[in-house]
Write a protein that binds this DNA or RNA. Structure first.
Lengths: 255, 255
DNA sequence: TTGCCGAATTAACATGGATTAGTAGCCCGA
DNA sequence: TCGGGCTACTAATCCATGTTAATTCGGCAA
């Protein structure tokens, strides 16, 4: 377990996220908090998980920013997901022991772990917790599908806008963005790897968004001046971030 | 339930697929076969599932060919997955009631369903079946990630080659392709929607592959003349289609 | 302070793939 | 049998994005 006060504080985004859907009981909350062990902080660029690593437990991002990625043999890299505080590194540990992709920290990133056995017993005894985990994976899937749409169909300016909208909402949901302001501790080259665009073109596109008065940037601080308009440019609709949310709440006791 | 002999026959690819990983018992097999009801055949272009549809059960593709897709308001379409016999239309029915994307038949497609309640009871009483379903979703996820890599990083000829390799292996796994020959009942425009390329460019690219002696096509019949070489062109590695396979088999009783 | 290095930025140029605009083949229904 | 509507296929042209290369900026270590 982690230090109590500290852990509550650091784990706030995580709990906020789990709580958002299923309304965990206090008991559930402390059960999962007490299961978190082995907090550690990774430096930017460090791998949290390498492809083919044997996974021995579930890690949660508590602070920082990370990504899932896959490499081609010639060095091309596709980032297939961004992980923000509250996201899991490797939920599929429940079933599979080895990852097919790597996870890397992009900013200094603190994670904590739950052992596989502990996780399995939590899941078996706490249905709401189990549902919360399921929900997490489903949202991840939905995001992945939306990213495929993004990269497959949208033009550069639409892609960038869409990603900014998504990240703003996700960070806002865990209390890390507000009033249009967010910190994205990623380089333009990393944005490019996520969107299938070159660094240069990311830069051009951000300039264009700034020119249209939609965005201000200052280093890694982003200020979305008009979220509604940015969403229109990015053909962004937030539905996919709340998969089944409204439907689950009215009947939380169904399963 | 479906007619017995007929159902065994039609459901062969499905059972083959479930069986591939976890080695179901005869008992498991008949349990799931007996749960299949309501077989129906959809025509090409018919939606099997519409976005926002309330899902009342799990459908399995028994015969034919289908796709998951998402539409942008202006009509652009991204196909986010192909479903071959043995694939599930909507596994997330276990948790969520509404789909965030649609599923459409591309060829005449026969599906059968399992009611949600029946499915839940199967899952609760048959751990190996439950594992098989989990595995299915994980493979789907892995494919989705690989598609994102494909569309985000690979050039057109690589993308097309990669997809052909993937579909060949997936169809071969359920007994629907062999000796380099496969039937793809999809139009070139549909391939384009899956790969983020225009119809015209799909056509050019197929011509190029034919020109290089890698491929022969005749209508919707494809003949891969040299799978190894095609895989090299497509930077294709089949690992992602067997997520954790080798790791699960040695300890099938672990959960 | 100086020097270094990675990241941001910009400009010039190159190109892969989109778009447009056709023709031709094929199936199917009248 | 004909005609209509897809789908395959091709060529010409255009443009969004990649590539290359150089400059600037900011932080950080000596």
């Amino acid at each position: 377990m982690l230090g109590d006060l500290t852990s509550d504080f650091i784990a706030a985004p995580f709990m906020r996220r789990l709580n958002a859907l299923v309304g965990l009981s206090d008991d559930d909350k402390s059960a999962i908090l007490d299961s978190l062990t082995d907090a550690r902080t990774a430096r930017p660029r460090a791998d949290l998980l390498r492809a083919d690593d044997v996974i021995d437990g579930l890690s949660v991002v508590l602070e920082g920013f990370a990504c899932r990625y896959k490499l081609l043999p010639d060095g091309r890299r596709q980032i297939v997901a961004f992980l923000v505080p509250g996201d899991f590194c490797d939920l599929r540990v429940l079933v599979v022991e080895r990852a097919d992709h790597a996870v890397a920290a992009l900013a200094p990133t603190t994670t904590a772990s739950i052992t596989r056995d502990r996780l399995l017993s939590l899941v078996n005894t706490r249905p709401r917790l189990s549902r919360a985990l399921w929900w997490s994976t489903l949202v991840e899937d939905a995001i992945l599908r939306e990213w495929l749409v993004n990269v497959g169909q949208r033009a550069a300016i639409e892609r960038v806008s869409h990603l900014l909208c998504e990240l703003y909402l996700r960070l806002e949901a865990v209390g890390l963005a507000a009033d249009g302001r967010l910190e994205l501790p990623v380089t333009q080259s990393e944005l490019g790897d996520a969107l299938g665009l070159s660094t240069v073109h990311i830069n051009r596109t951000l300039r264009e968004l700034r020119g249209q008065g939609l965005l201000e940037t200052n280093g890694k601080s982003y200020f979305i001046r008009d979220l509604a308009r940015l969403a229109r440019v990015g053909i962004f609709s937030p539905d996919y971030l709340r998969v089944g949310r409204d439907l689950l709440e009215p009947r939380p006791d169904r399963y």
